[in-house]
Simulated scan of single mutants.
Amino acid sequence: MLDLCKIFGVEKGEKFKIDGYEDIYFIENGYLYYIGDYGEKKSYLKSYLIINDVVGKNIIKIPKKKNFTDDELCVLKNIDKKYKWIARDKSGNLCIFDEKPNKNEEIWDNVIRSDFIELNCYNSLFNSIQWEDEEPVCIDDYVDRESEED
């Protein structure tokens, strides 16, 4: 039997996307599943993708969600909506960005040099955001923020 985890380079249960396909996939009990969205209800459906159609395509792993405390979620909810990303640099400073930053040798930075703010007063919070994270955290994935125009 084929080991789908080896073929796709993912762990059992790890969510991922396949370049060129819209769905989110995961592997459980030797089967490839995708997450179907039916209104407010999510369904896990067996996928019948043909392996030859997807071999060699880029696999995009979806980072696991962070577990934020109620206090941390409250802080995130009250950050100006223009700031969409939060990350911690190598020295431990927490920063928010209006554009998705890239990780360089010691900080998260933006080639465009967009707007960012250091949140030094919150460095003791957000312990789940680490320098070792491969991607910055998208704030809107965790809280629903009202914009001032609403």
Score class of each variant (00 low, 15 high):
19 D>T: 01
142 Y>K: 10
34 Y>S: 10
92 G>T: 10
9 G>Q: 04
8 F>W: 03
66 K>T: 07
45 L>Q: 13
108 W>L: 04
48 Y>H: 15
147 S>P: 02
5 C>F: 00
62 I>H: 11
112 I>H: 09
111 V>K: 07
7 I>H: 02
108 W>V: 04
62 I>L: 14
123 N>P: 02
18 I>S: 03
74 C>E: 14
74 C>H: 11
50 I>L: 14
139 I>P: 04
36 G>W: 06
86 I>G: 08
133 D>T: 05
66 K>Y: 14
22 E>I: 10
143 V>A: 10
37 D>W: 06
27 I>F: 07
141 D>I: 02
134 E>P: 00
147 S>F: 02
80 D>V: 12
118 E>P: 01
55 V>L: 15
119 L>S: 02
12 K>N: 12
86 I>E: 05
41 K>Q: 12
81 K>V: 15
70 D>K: 15
150 D>S: 15
54 V>M: 02
94 L>W: 09
108 W>R: 05
61 K>F: 10
62 I>G: 05
5 C>A: 01
124 S>A: 05
58 N>R: 15
64 K>E: 15
29 N>R: 12
147 S>E: 14
149 E>Y: 15
126 F>Q: 03
75 V>H: 10
20 G>Y: 04
122 Y>N: 04
68 F>P: 13
61 K>L: 12
69 T>E: 11
100 K>P: 01
49 L>Y: 13
131 W>S: 07
88 R>M: 10
5 C>M: 09
51 I>P: 02
23 D>F: 09
128 S>R: 05
13 G>A: 05
42 K>W: 03
9 G>F: 08
134 E>M: 06
122 Y>G: 00
118 E>G: 00
98 D>S: 12
131 W>T: 10
130 Q>T: 14
49 L>S: 00
84 K>Y: 07
53 D>N: 15
136 P>K: 01
132 E>T: 15
3 D>Y: 00
77 K>N: 15
33 Y>E: 02
